[in-house]
Amino acid sequence: MSGIALSRLAQERKAWRKDHPFGFVAVPTKNPDGTMNLMNWECAIPGKKGTPWEGGLFKLRMLFKDDYPSSPPKCKFEPPLFHPNVYPSGTVCLSILEEDKDWRPAITIKQILLGIQELLNEPNIQDPAQAEAYTIYCQNRVEYEKRVRAQAKKFAPS
């Protein structure tokens, strides 16, 4: 494992614990031996107030490669969400998460999670990743928002 990646992720964890947006979660997972795995984080993004996503808490896994922060983490909703920019596998399609697009090593975990929260309610229809959600979003916004509200209710924190 890269010392650069681990040191950056340790800084990220410290900064997150000191200050993070209300309702968001970002925690490194534990290895079988109980030690912390900084390369694999369990996160959760709350649906934004005043949107059909409100009330939901959407679980996301963030996986970092050894060359982080040169390369972005892979962000994957578990379980996958109904959304035009979420692949059926759950992987998020967002330009700041793509090395050859808008990724920059200075982007923080907090910025990534806030960017994904923004994307939930403002899909990028130029870059669809899920045919069904994309089609319904474009053709029947009322039905799309109904499905999103049902999903938010399903993923409401207990």
Rank of each mutant, 00 (worst) to 15 (best):
S2V: 15
I4A: 12
I4D: 15
A5I: 15
A5D: 05
L6I: 05
L6Q: 11
S7H: 07
S7V: 11
S7F: 02
L9E: 07
L9T: 03
L9P: 01
L9I: 06
A10H: 05
A10S: 10
A10R: 03
Q11F: 07
E12I: 02
R13N: 02
K14A: 02
A15V: 10
R17W: 04
R17Q: 03
R17K: 10
D19F: 12
D19T: 15
D19Y: 03
P21A: 01
P21M: 06
F22L: 05
G23Y: 09
F24G: 07
F24C: 08
F24E: 08
F24P: 00
F24W: 05
V25E: 02
V27K: 13
V27M: 14
P28N: 06
P28W: 00
T29A: 09
T29Y: 15
T29S: 14
K30N: 06
K30Q: 07
N31P: 07
N31M: 13
N31E: 11
N31R: 09
P32E: 10
D33R: 01
D33T: 04
G34H: 14
T35F: 00
T35H: 06
M36E: 05
M36G: 04
N37Y: 14
N37R: 13
L38H: 01
L38I: 10
L38K: 00
M39E: 14
M39V: 13
M39T: 10
N40R: 09
N40M: 12
W41P: 03
W41H: 10
W41S: 03
E42R: 10
E42T: 12
E42S: 11
E42D: 12
C43E: 08
A44N: 08
A44Y: 15
P46V: 09
P46C: 10
G47N: 03
K48L: 13
K49L: 06
G50N: 15
G50I: 05
G50D: 06
T51W: 02
T51K: 06
T51H: 07
T51A: 02
T51S: 13
P52L: 09
E54I: 08
G55S: 10
G56K: 06
L57P: 05
L57N: 09
F58L: 05
F58N: 01
K59H: 14
L60Q: 05
L60S: 06
R61E: 10
R61S: 12
R61A: 10
L63N: 11
K65V: 07
D67W: 06
D67E: 13
Y68I: 02
Y68P: 03
Y68A: 05
P69Q: 01
P69S: 03
S70H: 07
P72A: 13
P73A: 12
P73Y: 03
P73G: 01
P73T: 10
K74H: 15
K74W: 02
C75N: 06
C75E: 03
C75P: 15
K76E: 15
K76S: 15
F77A: 00
F77V: 02
E78G: 13
E78M: 14
E78F: 04
E78A: 11
E78K: 15
P79H: 15
P79F: 12
L81R: 04
F82Y: 06
F82Q: 02
H83Y: 00
H83F: 06
H83P: 02
H83T: 15
P84W: 04
N85A: 08
N85D: 01
V86F: 13
Y87N: 02
Y87P: 00
P88N: 08
T91G: 15
T91E: 14
V92H: 01
C93P: 00
I96M: 08
I96E: 00
L97W: 10
L97Q: 05
L97C: 15
E98R: 07
E98H: 15
E98P: 11
E99T: 05
D102C: 11
D102M: 12
D102A: 13
D102S: 14
W103T: 03
R104K: 11
R104I: 01
A106Y: 01
A106G: 11
A106T: 13
I107R: 06
I107P: 03
T108L: 15
I109L: 11
I109S: 04
I109Y: 03
Q111I: 14
L113Q: 06
L114M: 13
G115E: 04
I116A: 15
Q117A: 14
Q117G: 12
Q117V: 06
E118L: 11
L119I: 05
E122G: 08
E122V: 13
P123T: 00
P123V: 08
P123G: 00
N124Y: 09
N124C: 12
I125P: 07
I125C: 11
I125M: 09
Q126K: 12
Q126S: 13
D127S: 07
Q130S: 09
Q130I: 02
Q130F: 07
Q130C: 08
A131M: 06
A131T: 14
A131L: 11
E132P: 07
E132Q: 09
E132S: 08
A133C: 09
A133I: 04
A133G: 07
A133V: 05
A133H: 05
Y134P: 05
Y134R: 00
I136T: 09
I136E: 12
C138G: 08
Q139K: 10
Q139R: 13
N140A: 15
R141N: 13
V142D: 14
V142K: 15
V142N: 15
E143L: 10
E143M: 12
E143P: 06
E143D: 11
Y144F: 05
Y144A: 00
Y144N: 03
Y144V: 01
Y144I: 03
E145K: 08
K146T: 13
V148F: 00
R149K: 12
R149P: 05
A150L: 13
Q151L: 07
Q151W: 02
A152Q: 05
A152G: 07
K153S: 10
K153I: 15
K153Y: 05
K153D: 15
K154E: 11
K154P: 01
F155S: 10
F155C: 11
F155T: 05
A156Q: 12
P157A: 13
P157F: 12
